[in-house]
C-alpha cells in the first residue's frame, strides 16, 4: 500500500515537472503557422474582392446608368405588362389584332370624324 502511494506521488511529481517544463516549439514552426494564417487571410480577401472587381465592368456601369437592378426590375415589369396587354387587352380598349386583320388603322371611322367636325 505504501509502495503504491509512493508510485502515485512520484507520478504526480513527474506530471508537475512536465507541466512546469513544457515543450518548446521547434524552430520556425511559429513563423510557419503565422505565415499560413496570413496567407489564408490574403486568399480570402482576394476571393471576396474579385466579384466586386468583376462587377465594376461595363455591364455594371450600364446598369448603374439605368438606375441599377431596381430600375431593371421595373423595366422588365413594364415590358411584361406591355406584352400581356398586347395579347389580352381589356375590353375597354380596341383589339389590336382586329386592326391588323381588317387593315383599318384608324380609331374612328372617317365618316364619323368628318361628321363630328361639321357638328362643331
Amino acid at each position: 500500500m505504501a509502495e503504491r502511494d509512493k508510485d502515485v506521488t512520484d507520478l504526480e511529481d513527474l506530471f508537475q515537472a512536465a507541466r512546469r517544463q513544457g515543450i518548446a516549439l521547434p524552430d520556425g514552426l511559429e513563423d510557419r503557422i503565422i505565415a499560413d494564417g496570413l496567407q489564408v487571410q490574403r486568399a480570402r480577401q482576394g476571393r471576396s474582392a474579385s466579384p466586386r472587381r468583376a462587377s465594376a465592368g461595363r455591364v455594371r456601369q450600364f446598369l448603374d446608368l439605368l438606375g441599377g437592378w431596381p430600375a431593371m426590375g421595373g423595366l422588365a415589369m413594364a415590358c411584361a405588362t406591355g406584352i400581356w396587354l398586347g395579347f389580352a387587352p381589356p375590353q375597354a380598349l380596341p383589339d389590336p389584332f382586329g386592326f391588323v386583320q381588317s387593315g383599318d388603322t384608324g380609331l374612328f371611322a372617317d365618316d364619323d370624324l368628318v361628321l363630328a367636325m361639321v357638328e362643331e
Binding site: I23, L25, P26, E30, I34, L38, Q41, R44, Q45
Partner: peptide, 20 residues
C-alpha cells in the same frame, strides 16, 4: 475579418498546446 495580429496572438496561445 482580416486582422493580422489575431493570427499572431492565436498562434502564440494555441500552437504550443497543439504541439505539446
Amino acid at each position: 475579418n482580416g486582422e493580422q495580429d489575431a493570427a499572431r496572438t492565436l498562434t502564440w496561445r494555441l500552437a504550443p498546446r497543439a504541439f505539446g
